[in-house]
Every structure is written in structure tokens, then in C-alpha cells.
Simulated scan of single mutants.
Amino acid sequence: MSELVFEQPLNEKVRNYLRLEHLAEQLDTHLQQDHQQRCFSPLLSLCELSERCDFRSELLQDINKLLMHLKTPAVQASLCQHQWQFFQEQLTLARELLQHPERPGVQLKRNRFLATIRQKLTMAGTCCNFDLPQLQYWLAQPWDERQQQYQQWVSHFHCLLHPISLLLQFTRMSSEYRQAVAHAGFYHDNSPNNLSLVRVKMDASAGCYPTISGHRNRFAIHFVQFDQQKHSQQTVQFLLATCS
């Protein structure tokens, strides 16, 4: 069986970034293949999140911090020239795009077709042609035309999703996996530094999964037997990465 990676954010900011990254992955999946009306779920979720929270100011702060961090000798020594140049160029470009005065996705809010879909899909079982004839019409269009239009809708959020991808990529690179053992299905640890993300990698054949909790510089991991849905009493070996 394959290896599984479980991630737990230790602050609200990284929690939001991971949720947006997850939506971005779903958007990309729907762009590659025709999944009919399922493509609207991540798009409309992204619209709702961007309306509820303006992530730009926090993203700009994080981008500026990372750009300053890239100038430190320790970071320059840890990255190859190609990696350093990649983050420097991409983050600088992302900062420029984020300074646009209009909030990402605001134009989609004025799209009458998407507004109708959004209103109806919040109700259970409303994908019938008599509920949403405009959706049935749209789905009947050639896939390449729908794909192009979907790509255009998604592009409104590129200025938001791309820097989040860069920040999370750098966060994950900040720590390498190390061997760890959970005795009687439990593991806990502390760190002298503030942590933002805990990552657990394990083989799916172990028959259990981790539930991770924590805040800042401490965390705990309980392993749960999937079949019985209760805490495991077994010794579990896994790989652990703690990212600042």
C-alpha cells in the first residue's frame, strides 16, 4: 500500500492557507478533465471564502517576511541558486499582483449564471433540469468551451492561490522528516521555536491514522485504528516533520 501524509496546522493562518490550497488542487483537477457540475463546488467555495475574508493583507505581510528571510546567509546557504532565484522572482511578482485594489473574485460575484448556480447548489437535490435549466444548457456545451470558461473563472483567484502555494512549499521545505515512534498509539513533543505545521508520513498498511492537536510549540498525536474507530494501543512507527 502507498504512503500517506497527514498535515495539521498549528495556527489559524496556516489552516486557511491549507484549505485554499486544497481548493486550488480541486480546481486544477476539474480543469484537466470534464467532471460535469462537480467543478462548481470548489469554485463557489473559493468565492465564498474570498468574500468572507480578505487574505491579501496577511499574504502581503508573509511575502515581505519571506523575501527578507531569503536575504539571510542561513537561508542562502540552505538553498541552491535555482531554488533561491525561483522564490525570489515568484514572490516579487506575486506581491505586485496582490496590490491590485479589487478583491480577488469580486467580478464573479456579478456573474448572474454563477450567482444562480451558487444559490441553488446550497439546497439538497437541486441539480435537476427543472431546477437549473441554465446549468443543463451549460453542461451541453463542448468540453473545450466549458474548459476555457472555467479557466477564466479560476484565473480571478490566481493572485491569491499562487503565493499561498509558494509560502506552503517553503514552509514544508523548512523541516525534513525524521523517524518517530508512538508507544501505545501516543506521541507528543515540544519545540523551542513556534511551529506552524506538523506533518506525519506513514504506510497505509498500518491500519491506523493520526489525529493531531497542538498550538505553537507543542503538539500531540493519537493514532486511531480505522476498523474499530478507537485509540490504538499498538506501537506505531512513522516519519515526522515539524515546520516553523
Score class of each variant (00 low, 15 high):
residue 242 T to A: 14
residue 190 N to G: 03
residue 73 P to V: 09
residue 59 L to G: 12
residue 240 L to P: 08
residue 213 S to N: 08
residue 136 Q to G: 06
residue 188 H to C: 12
residue 58 E to R: 03
residue 73 P to I: 09
residue 165 S to M: 05
residue 96 E to Q: 15
residue 63 I to G: 04
residue 168 L to Q: 05
residue 60 L to A: 06
residue 139 L to T: 05
residue 195 L to P: 10
residue 151 Q to S: 15
residue 195 L to W: 01
residue 31 L to C: 04
residue 125 G to R: 02
residue 155 S to I: 07
residue 206 A to E: 07
residue 223 F to V: 01
residue 198 V to G: 04
residue 218 R to I: 01
residue 26 Q to A: 14
residue 176 E to H: 14
residue 160 L to I: 13
residue 195 L to V: 11
residue 37 Q to W: 14
residue 241 A to D: 07
residue 136 Q to L: 02
residue 186 F to C: 02
residue 7 E to P: 02
residue 199 R to Y: 01
residue 93 L to Q: 15
residue 182 A to P: 06
residue 44 L to S: 06
residue 107 Q to I: 05
residue 53 C to W: 10
residue 118 R to M: 10
residue 222 H to T: 03
residue 162 H to S: 13
residue 182 A to F: 04
residue 121 L to G: 06
residue 13 K to I: 10
residue 122 T to R: 15
residue 40 F to A: 11
residue 55 F to W: 10
residue 139 L to Y: 02
residue 204 A to E: 11
residue 26 Q to K: 15
residue 74 A to T: 14
residue 194 N to I: 06
residue 166 L to Q: 11
residue 160 L to D: 09
residue 99 Q to K: 15
residue 201 K to S: 14
residue 77 A to L: 10
residue 66 L to K: 05
residue 230 K to R: 11
residue 91 L to D: 13
residue 11 N to E: 10
residue 22 H to A: 12
residue 100 H to M: 09
residue 190 N to S: 07
residue 117 I to H: 00
residue 6 F to W: 05
residue 223 F to Q: 00
residue 93 L to E: 15
residue 110 R to A: 14
residue 9 P to N: 05
residue 76 Q to G: 15
residue 179 Q to P: 02
residue 177 Y to G: 07
residue 71 K to V: 04
residue 31 L to Q: 01
residue 45 S to A: 14
residue 77 A to C: 05
residue 192 P to D: 10
residue 120 K to D: 03
residue 49 L to Q: 13
residue 189 D to H: 06
residue 10 L to I: 08
residue 208 C to I: 01
residue 118 R to Q: 15
residue 40 F to T: 06
residue 190 N to C: 06
residue 60 L to W: 01
residue 235 T to V: 11
residue 104 P to Y: 03
residue 159 C to N: 08
residue 128 C to I: 00
residue 43 L to W: 11
residue 130 F to G: 00
residue 228 Q to R: 12
residue 165 S to A: 13
residue 45 S to F: 05
residue 149 Q to W: 08
residue 151 Q to L: 14
residue 136 Q to M: 03
residue 110 R to N: 11
residue 4 L to K: 02
residue 241 A to F: 07
residue 91 L to Y: 04
residue 28 D to W: 07
residue 27 L to F: 11
residue 28 D to V: 08
residue 93 L to C: 10
residue 58 E to Y: 05
residue 52 R to G: 01
residue 234 Q to D: 12
residue 240 L to N: 04
residue 98 L to H: 09
residue 201 K to Q: 14
residue 180 A to V: 04
residue 53 C to F: 12
residue 43 L to N: 06
residue 16 N to H: 14
residue 229 Q to V: 03
residue 82 H to Q: 13
residue 137 Y to I: 11
residue 1 M to I: 04
residue 110 R to H: 13
residue 177 Y to E: 09
residue 24 A to R: 13
residue 170 F to S: 08
residue 81 Q to L: 12
residue 214 G to V: 04
residue 216 R to H: 12
residue 222 H to D: 08
residue 32 Q to H: 07
residue 207 G to V: 03
residue 30 H to R: 03
residue 31 L to W: 00
residue 62 D to H: 09
residue 212 I to Q: 00
residue 43 L to M: 12
residue 93 L to V: 14
residue 100 H to R: 10
residue 82 H to S: 12
residue 117 I to D: 01
residue 223 F to H: 00
residue 144 D to N: 06
residue 82 H to L: 11
residue 230 K to A: 05
residue 84 W to C: 08
residue 103 R to F: 05
